[in-house]
Computed example of a mutant assay.
Amino acid sequence: MKGLDIEPERVLTLFATIDMSSNKFHGGIPEIVGNLISLQLLNFSHNSLTGHIPSSLGNLTALESLDLSTNKLVGEIPMQLIGLKFLEVLNLSQNQLVGLIPQGNQLNTFLNDSYDGNLGLFGFPVSKSCGKGEEQEPPESAFHKEFILVHWIGNL
């Protein structure tokens, strides 16, 4: 409103898509983004965002696409992202993330390119473990273990 700073009295939670990509945003991703529970797509890529990925993003249970690539985000990937059971697209590449990549639900479906450029990340699916050059194996699913057991029993 033409130069006026207005503080919203409440946050609308009805948005389905927020695309703030390719701007010159800096600073951290606000925790309050986790209150936008109707979001299906969230794109903050190609900015200069810093700080950690808010754990509150795990509240976005309808989220299908999350792109935080090409920023300056640091720290570990929050375990709460395991709860995003509808996530089809994940791009956290080209940041400064570190630590073990959380496993479970949809996070098990993403490949190396979702994490490229984060030299401090390790674990499945990245190709190297803690910089030691060891190949990572995908975690065995309960279905896979049950299949092997049934196959083994069937051969007795």
Rank of each mutant, 00 (worst) to 15 (best):
S56V: 01
T17F: 14
F86Y: 13
G27Y: 10
K72R: 13
A142N: 09
G133Y: 11
S55C: 06
N118K: 00
N118H: 02
L60I: 00
T17N: 04
S141Y: 07
H26D: 14
A142L: 11
V11D: 04
G104P: 04
Q136P: 11
L41F: 15
G117N: 06
P8I: 09
E7M: 13
P138D: 13
G104S: 09
N108C: 10
L66P: 01
E64R: 15
P138M: 11
D19H: 02
F122Y: 15
N35T: 09
G123F: 05
F110L: 02
I37R: 15
H52N: 06
N112W: 08
A142P: 09
N71E: 03
Q80F: 09
D19G: 11
T17E: 10
F15V: 15
S21G: 13
N155K: 14
G120D: 01
Q136V: 15
E140Y: 06
G3D: 14
S141K: 07
F124S: 03
I37E: 15
S129D: 08
L60N: 02
M79P: 12
N71C: 04
A62H: 13
S55Q: 09
L41R: 10
S45M: 06
F86H: 15
V74W: 03
V33W: 07
E9P: 08
M20W: 06
P139I: 05
R10Y: 04
L87H: 05
A16G: 07
N118T: 01
D67H: 01
S21V: 00
S129W: 11
L156C: 10
S56H: 05
N95V: 06
D113Q: 07
Q80A: 09
L90W: 05
L107I: 02
D67V: 01
T109E: 15
S129L: 14
G154M: 12
D116T: 08
T50Q: 09
R10W: 05
V89N: 10
L68I: 04
S22C: 07
L60Y: 02
I77T: 03
S38L: 08
N91V: 02
N35F: 01
I32H: 05
H151M: 06
I29G: 00
I82H: 08
K132A: 10
E64T: 12
T50D: 15
N118V: 00
Y115F: 15
N91F: 01
Q136N: 15
L84K: 08
F122Q: 05
M1P: 10
R10C: 04
I18P: 00
I6Y: 10
L111N: 10
L81P: 03
Q40C: 12
H46C: 02
L87N: 03
E76I: 13
P8Q: 15
L57M: 07
Q40L: 13
H52F: 03
F147S: 06
V89W: 02
N108W: 03
S21L: 03
N23V: 14
Q96H: 13
P78L: 12
I153S: 08
E76C: 11
S93Y: 03
I148W: 15
L107D: 01
V74N: 07
N59S: 13
P139G: 11
S127V: 08
M20L: 13
I18A: 02
G117P: 01
L68K: 00
G133K: 08
V74Y: 04
G131D: 07
I101D: 01
